[in-house]
Amino acid sequence: MENIILPLSYLIGSITFIVGLKMLSHPDSARKGNLVAAAGMTLAIFATIFLYHDEQGNTLGNYPWIFGGLVIGTVLGTLAAKKVQMTAMPEMVSLFNGMGGACAMLISVIEYHHNPSADKGMLIVIVLGMIIGTVSFAGSIIAWGKLNGKIKDKAIPGAQIINFILWAALVVLAVMLITGFCATPVVFYGILAVAALYGVLFVMPIGGADMPVVISLLNSFTGVAAAFGGFLYNNPVMLTGGILVGSAGTILTMLMCKAMNRSLKNVLIGSFGNNAASG
């Protein structure tokens, strides 16, 4: 009997995410939709803490650490979210998004540290989850800094070429690690460093006014990173939650661009073009 409660909670969690998103997209039901999703999330979290067990039937341990983390996060998160001024909300969203990305990144790091010689499928999931989480984390922090004026828009000469080199480096390093050609922790942390650098350079040249669009895009990145976590743990609620945000976030990004009468390409590449023209 007990072993159906966890999958059932996950199922309910997934449904509340879908219903919540649906309600969030209508003015009258939006606020309730947010609460519905929050309730489903709470259920899924507590069901995981108390009922999760691995294939050998071992339940989770380290409860003091888990609850300590939950309490600290809840207090800090509530305070930050309550105190923030109305005008500063987008940068708060960006910061929270970065936290989610960092969380996905840390999960991958720990999993790799536990099992550096996992099979190829697992390594692919771990590495991709880490790359996307890290890009999202680094990008969100830059976006946050830009919105509150700490970081100025900066034209980087040859940004496109640098980004291309970083992409190539990511692919080469990831292939080296996954095929086992050179599977050392150095390569793994190299991937992390390159991904972080890419995240920074990705957001750096984009104009401050376009920041909400970029945050929305990074938001969907974090969703995908969360979904890789779902693959890692065979966890349906992480998978549905993550992918839903990934796809809904991507569509939302496009809708936001449309509302500003611009194309996504324009927002992302446009600033590079301007730099070239002015420089």
């Binding site: 999330m41 899924a44 380290n62 983390g69 987008p90 969203v93 989610g100 945000v245 976030g249």
Partner: peptide
């Protein structure tokens, strides 16, 4: 979605991908 709801919807979706916390709990508990 009407454009006035773009930012709240982004923020709501942002909270939902926080579901990654479940992975953190599992990794921590193990």
């Amino acid at each position: 979605v009407p454009s006035v709801l773009h930012t709240p919807l982004m923020s709501g979706a942002n909270a939902i991908h926080g579901v990654v916390i479940i992975g953190a709990i599992i990794v921590m508990g193990q």
